[in-house]
Design a protein around this nucleic acid. Structure first.
Lengths: 155, 155
DNA sequence: CAAAATAGTTTGAATTTCAAACTATTTTAG
DNA sequence: CTAAAATAGTTTGAAATTCAAACTATTTTG
């Protein structure tokens, strides 16, 4: 297929505008879907934190605060909330007792999987009708964005 | 090109995970780039608000709070901040003097354009090496996500 | 083994948010 | 035509979120 430069420019604008709107909406819908389920006490931010803690990684508080770019104090507060609500557990590392390893409770793991399923659904709907080569393109686009982000942040 | 079902499944996972990370990073980098420029007093949220107010729309406070899903009180507070910092103006609507129409000052318009340029750069880097038909696919993917979001929110 | 470094928590202040009450204005219904 | 209802936006007070700095407990280093 061929395209004039103007048509492509128009696509760029469309994509740029759509991206801004879509992300906002996804965050909102992700939270509201979760709140319709048995996990009514969870915010989008907490979802993100639970996703970062992950199923089997036993990450430390410092690791998580570095990844999420939250101060250690803020993360402690967030973890207290999630612990109170029964989603996460703190485990003292027996090799180095300064360190807390983080894990999900069974409730936390259920939530993780529900959220993961939602993301999958979203990606599947996004790529509906795409073949293997289309999907590879999509992947490439994301790699490009990651590269762009790296370049901008390291300059 | 041909792909096995397993390869495709792997791509789905990659895309799903990448999307989660990327959004977070974009927000952060967007703010940090803006803060390196003459607009040092602006947060990512304020950037989003300025984008929503837009260059020429003269939206009302209610419209903006509906779009951004912020309470009217919260929006009033945000607008006060941006007004104090010289980015926006409130204009009393002379047809209906209850209504405030919102506009950007020249400083606000400069910021809008700088942010817009950043988004364009991002999208351009994302689509580097893509031809017209690839780009159309990309557009389709976003339309698909929008449709998914609409379906989920209306069900 | 004492000093420095590290992991995580606590503290106090600043910011952001919301819902509800409030003010000003316009629309509606009798 | 006017009193009541509705609407647009602001104010208020409380709750939640965040951060940096001080702090506690533990481990590493010299």
């Amino acid at each position: 297929m061929n395209s004039t430069s103007d048509e492509i420019k128009d696509d760029y604008n469309f994509i740029s505008e759509a991206l801004i709107d879509i992300y906002d909406q996804i965050m909102r819908i992700e939270e509201s879907e979760i709140r319709k389920s048995r996990f009514k006490d969870i915010t989008a931010k907490e979802l993100h934190l639970i996703h970062t803690i992950g199923l089997h990684d036993r990450k430390t508080t410092s690791e998580v605060s570095r990844v999420l770019k939250l101060s250690k104090g803020t993360l402690t507060a967030n973890l207290n909330n999630l612990e109170k609500k029964g989603y996460i557990i703190r485990m003292i590392n027996q090799q180095d007792r300064r360190i807390i390893n983080l894990g999900l409770t069974s409730k936390g793991r259920l939530l993780y999987r529900a959220n993961y399923a939602f993301h999958r659904q979203l990606v599947e709907s996004c790529l509906k009708g795409f073949d293997g080569s289309d999907i590879r393109k999509m992947r490439q686009a994301l790699v490009n964005v990651e590269k762009f982000i790296d370049e901008v942040s390291s300059k």
